Computed example of a mutant assay.
Amino acid sequence: MTITTLPVAPIEAPASGDRFSVPAHHFRVAVEAGLRAVDIRTQDRRSAGGAIHGALALDPHDALERLTPGTGDSLRTASADARWLLISDDGDDAEWLAWHLRARGVTGAAFLAGGHDALRRHRLNGDLAAGELAMISDHPQ
């Protein structure tokens, strides 16, 4: 299957068995396995729907350039082997971004199926992992 979205070159589907989407109920497992959560909702949507604890928050319009290695706006941690777990409102924008990052050589880009909406349905929005609470408690005021 080939999807073409101009001005980006054709994008090949991931090989079978390649983790491209992560179900919302596997969010914690995916993060514990080393995927870095990236919240690409707008700031207004994050304010209205709640933050995703531990996620890197990026403006959706800047995310492609920030997560692609070698651009003038790349994050220091952007690399071809970066393992991003992209999260949008309903998963659609995150899926689009994952496809485009893979087309640019970031083979570990994946998206959260159902997005933040699915996290909320599974009551994962706002939950803290065991280590996060300790980290917050130990942080000096």
Rank of each mutant, 00 (worst) to 15 (best):
T68Y: 00
T68L: 05
P69T: 11
P69Y: 08
P69V: 14
P69M: 03
G70T: 08
T71W: 06
T71N: 10
T71V: 12
T71I: 04
G72F: 06
G72E: 14
G72W: 01
G72Q: 11
D73S: 15
D73T: 14
D73K: 14
D73H: 15
D73C: 13
S74G: 12
S74N: 09
S74Y: 06
L75N: 02
L75W: 03
R76I: 06
R76D: 14
T77E: 15
T77H: 09
T77Y: 07
T77N: 12
T77V: 15
S79Y: 07
S79G: 15
S79L: 08
S79A: 15
A80P: 09
A80L: 15
A80W: 04
D81E: 14
A82Q: 08
A82L: 15
A82P: 13
A82C: 10
R83A: 14
R83M: 09
W84N: 07
W84E: 05
W84Q: 12
W84V: 08
W84D: 11
L85G: 11
L85E: 06
L85Q: 09
L86N: 01
L86G: 05
L86S: 00
L86E: 07
I87V: 15
I87N: 05
S88V: 04
S88W: 06
S88Q: 04
S88H: 02
S88G: 12
D89H: 13
D89L: 14
D89E: 13
D89S: 12
D89A: 14
D90A: 09
D90C: 09
D90Q: 10
D90L: 04
G91H: 10
G91Q: 11
D92Y: 03
D92H: 13
D92K: 12
D92M: 13
D92W: 02
D93I: 00
D93C: 01
D93H: 09
A94C: 07
A94V: 06
A94K: 02
A94I: 05
E95A: 10
E95D: 02
E95C: 13
E95G: 02
W96C: 04
W96K: 01
W96Q: 00
W96F: 14
L97P: 00
L97D: 10
L97V: 01
L97G: 03
L97C: 12
L97T: 07
L97Y: 11
A98D: 01
A98W: 00
A98R: 00
A98T: 04
A98H: 00
A98K: 00
W99Y: 01
W99N: 08
W99L: 07
H100A: 13
H100E: 08
H100M: 05
H100G: 00
H100D: 03
L101A: 04
L101P: 03
R102Q: 12
R102A: 09
R102T: 05
A103K: 12
A103Q: 15
A103W: 01
A103M: 11
A103N: 14
R104G: 11
R104T: 03
R104A: 14
G105N: 11
G105R: 04
V106K: 09
V106Q: 10
T107P: 05
T107R: 14
T107D: 15
G108A: 05
G108Y: 05
G108M: 04
G108W: 06
G108T: 05
A109Y: 08
A109H: 04
A110T: 05
A110E: 00
F111Q: 00
F111S: 08
F111K: 10
F111D: 01
F111E: 02
F111P: 02
L112D: 01
L112M: 07
L112T: 05
L112G: 08
L112W: 05
A113Q: 13
A113I: 01
